[in-house]
Design a protein around this nucleic acid. Structure first.
Lengths: 72, 72
DNA sequence: GTGTGACTGCGAGTCCGTT
DNA sequence: AAACGGACTCGCAGTCACA
């Protein structure tokens, strides 16, 4: 059976892609989303496990949807 | 501009709908997802703010995707 | 079968810094 | 610009008794 990819990996990839599409640094994104910059770093490195409300903040800052950021 | 609906409300609605589509009780779903019965209740009542890994467990138990459960 | 309050442990999330 | 660490606060994960 197909193993599910970890949702944190999917999120990390999608956030990175959306961020670079907008030419934002992690710091820029952190400021936009009102999230700590070290936390943004941790999420992109998959060492953090954010809540859905935090993902929603990222989605807004990245001009996309929560659902899209979790699409694998 | 349109105000964003709370992501917890979206999740609650989608989980309820998917659960009823499969004719599962909260207890049934809890057993499938290996999550406490009362925790399922809390999420459907939006008094919990789950992490994305918890949502992924629900998705698997409900035969859908994390992304779908967060689609508004 | 579901809602709810209360509880503990640990991780979510922040703030300081260095490399 | 980003990875990484330490120390911190508070809220989430997970459970229980009871209505």
């Amino acid at each position: 059976m197909a193993r599910m990819e970890d949702v944190r990996a999917i999120l990390a990839r999608n956030i990175k892609a959306a961020r670079k599409r907008l030419n934002l640094s992690q710091e820029d994104l952190a400021a936009r989303a009102e999230i700590d910059r070290t936390y943004v770093s941790g999420i992109e490195r998959q060492v953090r496990n954010p809540t859905i409300t935090v993902v929603a903040k990222f989605a807004e800052a990245l001009e996309t949807t929560t659902s899209d950021l979790l699409t694998g």
